[in-house]
């Protein structure tokens, strides 16, 4: 089941076409990462998904229902943390969350409980009585996150949720987001690739308003893999030239890790899966195979590859 289906949306600002026929979907219960360089149109897309901005063409469906046709029903299921913090700087934190919960139709009897829960989750309990404008940047960010989730929407759209937080808070917020996965679908944009690879199962990458890749992290990796590199550790390199001379080996790099441990980076010259062949060759040559891996999935390289 898809929580969100984006169907060919476009949007311009003046003559500047910011989104161009964007289509992708977000699976229910997943954490879906959204990547792209500055100005790619991530924030714009996220605003459109939550009804803050109207698309010029195309359609957004939330749980199968059109966002524009069933606004009232659909918006209740979406909480958004936009890139610009949506805060009333003259209001007290808990009053503000009350207001947001009420606006989103939380029952009067439940509001107190929802707000308390949310304050606890976002680590704002001690600041509940303070004026938002007087909080530090990181705490404002937390209040903005709190207003997105206080009414327990099924879908959370988070535009760079950890920006402006200290390392400890970043960790806390990441853990919070992971814990939210239980009962929310999360769509998350970020520039911190390690964050995305840590949290997300699915990924969409855009550049200049166009989709570059979308799918699970593995799928995208397969799709954009240009180099097929196998990394293995061996006991000795006495018969190295035999490996070197295999017809499917392009290049071979060795690195001595300790007296009896070497790392080999084998560049395979085809995209076919050569793991079986290579490992057999190493064993046959009695090199003492210790570990054997495909090169680790490196999101940074992948990202640069995709937006090239």
């Amino acid at each position: 089941m898809h929580a969100v289906v984006v169907d060919k949306i476009s949007r311009s600002f003046g003559v500047n076409k910011v989104l161009d026929n964007l289509s992708f979907s977000i699976k229910e219960g997943s954490i879906h990462g959204f990547l792209g360089p500055n100005g790619a149109g991530k924030s714009t897309t996220m605003k459109i998904l939550s009804g803050l901005l109207a698309p010029h063409s195309g359609e957004v469906k939330i749980f199968g229902e059109s966002l524009t046709e069933h606004q009232k029903k659909v918006k209740k299921q979406i909480g958004i943390l936009p890139d610009e913090l949506p805060l009333y700087y003259d209001m007290v934190v808990s009053d503000f969350l009350h207001f947001v919960a009420r606006l989103n139709g939380v029952d009067l009897l439940l509001i107190e409980q929802y707000v308390d829960e949310c304050l606890k989750k976002t680590g704002l309990e001690e600041n509940r009585g303070r004026i938002i404008g007087n909080l530090s940047r990181g705490y404002k960010q937390r209040v903005a996150l709190a207003q997105a989730m206080v009414f327990k929407p099924k879908i959370l759209i988070l535009d760079e949720p950890t920006v402006g937080l200290d390392p400890n808070s970043v960790k806390e917020i990441r853990e919070l987001i992971l814990s939210l996965k239980k009962d929310h679908t999360i769509f998350l944009s970020s520039h911190i690739l390690s964050e995305v690879s840590l949290m997300c199962n699915d990924l969409t990458i855009i550049n200049r308003g166009k989709i570059m890749a979308t799918g699970t992290v593995e799928e995208i990796h397969q799709q954009f893999k240009t180099k097929n590199i196998l990394v293995c550790r061996v006991h000795s390199i006495s018969h190295l030239e035999k490996i070197q001379n295999l017809e499917y080996v392009n290049k071979l790099e060795t690195k001595q890790l300790s007296e009896h441990e070497y790392e080999l980076r084998v560049d395979i010259n085809s995209t076919n899966d050569m793991r079986a062949e290579l490992s057999e060759a190493i064993i046959k040559n009695k090199m003492g195979l210790l570990t054997f891996n495909e090169e680790k999935l490196d999101l940074e390289k992948l990202f640069l590859e995709v937006i090239k």
Partner: peptide
Amino acid sequence: KYKSIFVLYSAPID
């Protein structure tokens, strides 16, 4: 100006 209008826009209200 201060974007708090987003709170109202994203709420299920007319």
